[in-house]
Write a protein that binds this DNA or RNA. Structure first.
Lengths: 311, 311
DNA sequence: CTTTGCAAG
DNA sequence: CTTGTAAAG
């Protein structure tokens, strides 16, 4: 049966669990069975070589690790990822080594950027099971690299960028910097890299692209993250340049949020926004097995998102 | 039997509870039976007209009221006081009314001072069952009244001052202000009032007077609160002017602390200081039934202190 | 070690 | 509402 735009079929002829057709890939690719409890896609065949990437705005890594309810090792075991990308770690450079050591066994390769201009602000990281060929911190433009917003690693088949796009802020006081400086600089950097290898950008891009990506579009037209200016910048700097919004490509009609503000208890009422993305070069987008959201993982005002890539 | 300087006798011929002679008044006044669990003095005879005053540095009143373990009403019922004096409320003027309303039924008279120079800093209050004849906020010297450190109320038989003496601070950077400005100004103000009625000053006077009043005298000779300068100022400005340290008068040899720093888990190990006092004009000091400490009341780095005054 | 206010999201 | 800072004790 269908509920609004979502097809909901309880299937009983799948193996262990009552998989439910809850979401779908774009029409020509057919429907996809999701576990309705966890909203995870069905497991990819073990014989298919693949990589599993998770990205998460953790809103303060130290606070997250302090939570009784959260264990990084449990998350790693349950999700069985190869690479974990973090945003808003809010770490200072001096705290990174202690955190790195305590974090995840088996993930010996981790690359951290911290804000040096405002301590305890922003901060991104890529934590990987596989050792990358190269690493770059920031855009390589000192004007935009003091806030620890970007880290890039190079794998065999693609560049992976973990980014935290500047929030336009209360009163939209940073909107202009965001759309005239940051977004174009990041876009140019991605296009430069793309001449060498496909590029995947993940992270908190601080923009809900379309009305489907936010719970109350009408009421948020002048809210940071849903202004016309930011949505237009997202379109022209990233999508029009050939980077594919993999979640939307896989699930054209699915309402899927990745952020729920603390301020109005939004997670309970699902008053959310989709701010976190995996954008992929067209040349690698057809290797996406699925792009999905992990809405049951708590501990931050964002949920993690996942990407499974066939190699 | 005696343990060090303290006489400890378990008495079985007192009424309900196994009162223990744990402390004593000064020799000519004889020993006093204390409840060894609570360290409270024996109840005063109901036929004796008296007033019970409690003073407490609460180290942030809003945090205290948030604690599950603490209820202001319970404290009021258990201790059955007439007047409660608070220091370090850390309230802002704008928050006082909400707190006042929520605080204590039956205590309709409350008088609050807040720091206007540093928000959320210092702050004192007197909360009373009895309506006082007059109230004064501060010393009446605008140079020293911006930090909400003093409130005075006038009762029938005495003036009650609730004060929070400036901490000399890390590096003793405020020691000079404290001993050359604040202490003499407060002392002069008390002597002025005393021409009209006896004076009782209570609060966090931020000075451990003698070696008996601090757990590690040798190691704290240059620590704020135990410098020779502060101890000398305490002696000359208050004791030598005829104000009696009522706890020490009642209990000449008792080690009794009222403050244990959070920094070294001092409360568990009793690494404490006696910083909180009831000082009383000589003319009213003989009406003191007892001056005592309430070491079992948690919720702050200070414990409350009590004074029972015969009228 | 803990409180407060503040900036930021 | 929650994170992080800083000043203060």
């Amino acid at each position: 049966h269908t509920t609004g735009k979502q097809l909901v079929i309880t299937s009983t002829d799948m193996k262990d669990e009552p998989w439910t057709i809850l979401t779908h890939k774009k029409p020509q690719k057919g429907w996809m069975a999701y576990n309705p409890k966890t909203m995870r896609p069905p497991p990819i065949a073990a014989a298919t070589a693949h990589m599993k990437l998770i990205s998460w705005n953790v809103n303060g890594l130290r606070a997250l690790l302090k939570l009784e309810s959260f264990s990084a090792m449990q998350l790693a075991q349950r999700e069985n990822f190869d690479v974990l990308c973090l945003q808003e770690t809010k770490l200072q450079e001096k705290d990174v080594d202690a955190i790195r050591l305590s974090l995840l066994e088996g993930f010996d390769n981790s690359y951290w950027t911290c804000s040096v201009s405002k301590l305890g602000y922003s901060g991104t990281a890529i934590i990987s099971r596989i050792k990358p060929h190269s690493v770059r911190y920031g855009l390589g433009l000192s004007d935009h690299d003091s806030e620890g917003r970007l880290v890039t690693v190079e794998f065999d088949n693609f560049y992976l960028l973990c980014g935290y796009v500047p929030n336009s802020g209360d009163g939209l006081k940073r909107l202009s910097y965001r759309i005239t400086q940051w977004d174009p600089s990041l876009s140019n950097y991605m296009k430069d890299l793309e001449r060498l290898k496909p590029v995947i950008l993940t992270g908190d891009l601080n923009c809900a692209h379309q009305e489907i990506d936010i719970w109350n579009p009408a009421g948020n037209k002048r809210s940071a993250g849903f202004t016309d200016e930011e949505r237009h910048s997202f379109q022209t700097n990233f999508l029009d340049k050939g980077f594919v919004d993999t979640f939307r490509e896989q699930h054209p009609d699915t309402v899927g949020y990745t952020y729920w503000g603390y301020r109005h208890g939004g997670r309970k009422t699902n008053k959310g926004w989709r701010l976190d993305y995996f954008l992929a070069s067209e040349s690698i987008a057809d290797q996406v097995y699925d792009s999905y959201i992990l809405p049951d993982v708590a501990g931050s005002d964002h949920s993690p998102i996942g990407l499974i890539l066939k190699l």
